[in-house]
Write a protein that binds this DNA or RNA. Sequence first.
DNA 1: CGACTAAACGCAATCCCTTTGCGTTAAGCG
DNA 2: CGCTTAACGCAAAGGGATTGCGTTTAGTCG
Lengths: 198, 198
Amino acid sequence: MSPKPMARPGGRSARVQASVHAAVRELEAERGREALTVPLVAARAGVTPSTIYRRWGDLQELLSDVAVERLRPDTEPADHGALRADLTAWAEQFLDEMSSTAGRAYIRDALLGDPDGGNAGQCSAYAAAQVDLVLDRARERGENGAGGEGGEADAPAREAVMDHVVAPIMYRILFRPEGLSTVYARELVARALDGLPD
Amino acid sequence: MSPKPMARPGGRSARVQASVHAAVRELEAERGREALTVPLVAARAGVTPSTIYRRWGDLQELLSDVAVERLRPDTEPADHGALRADLTAWAEQFLDEMSSTAGRAYIRDALLGDPDGGNAGQCSAYAAAQVDLVLDRARERGENGAGGEGGEADAPAREAVMDHVVAPIMYRILFRPEGLSTVYARELVARALDGLPD
DNA sequence: CGACTAAACGCAATCCCTTTGCGTTAAGCG
DNA sequence: CGCTTAACGCAAAGGGATTGCGTTTAGTCG
């Protein structure tokens, strides 16, 4: 669903999409995001502007698609042997990547050209999947009966981590970009795991 | 700072700004947000398009300014006599207003045309001020030594409420718009106040 | 109170992004 | 292998975005 509903997933359509996406990434690196226009991307991709307009409807929607692809995690969370260490390390890396200049630009683009909210939902789903991996691993270790419904002495449920770790990080990045460090991520994880044995 | 750095706060400049802002609000109500263009707004405001382009630089930046004005709270949080009741009521109203179709559009606009992040910061400052009012009132009542640094049995600090109530609400609105009700706001407040006597 | 400076605005010409109709290509399918 | 139609290329308007220049006027200083 990252690209528009494609009734024809193969052949020329697929080549056009790959070519356009590559053109966006190249031009973004060469001339910067501000200089991007639909005719410019079209020329680099070897297609006509009307093709892009018909398929994506808008420059912002195209950039939104590219941004979501770039926000997809490329590696699994590292295994440090314990839930607290895993979650802390993941949250720190998440904050680092997302709060970088490039990361903030991708988040904004993903939210921007997104009439139905599908792309933004995809971003959230990526983070949720990563969190699930960490929590599943803890459950397999038998930590505190992890994955329970967030009882006082159980490992937090997925939704609790989304609410109290991921959400505050994203809120700060979007609304209060000043003074953000990995310390903040560590504190959030510590609070979310409050009352758990270490 | 809502308008661009205005070296001339009075006279014609002020009239132009007021006229343009009014034109945006009128046309937004009449023809919908999608139909807005700079020439259209300019014609309604009785100015030339170049004036708008020079002053705001872009339609999105203009809409961002208008959106921030609309997101400014117009009333103080209601006083229900106790911290928990005050915070719950405020959070429910906050979620209702922000998750509405109009509210989401304003949030998106505010984030959109915002190169330096000043407008987004203003939105966060509005919410923080409202939270401060609620917490200050609790402190004046002498509730739990409210306003302390978030100790286990103290009322939560402002930052704790921003992290665990405001941030999750905004995250859900932006990234997971499905199935959002006042129940969610109430749960968040309950968790933030966990361990407090009622 | 009057003259000066420069920011802000109006006007108009230009550029090029956006949109749309029509013919052509080729992907999917029986 | 032939049919159907989605997807693409082409080209022509149509209109929004940009900019130079002259004019107005807000703010300031003598």
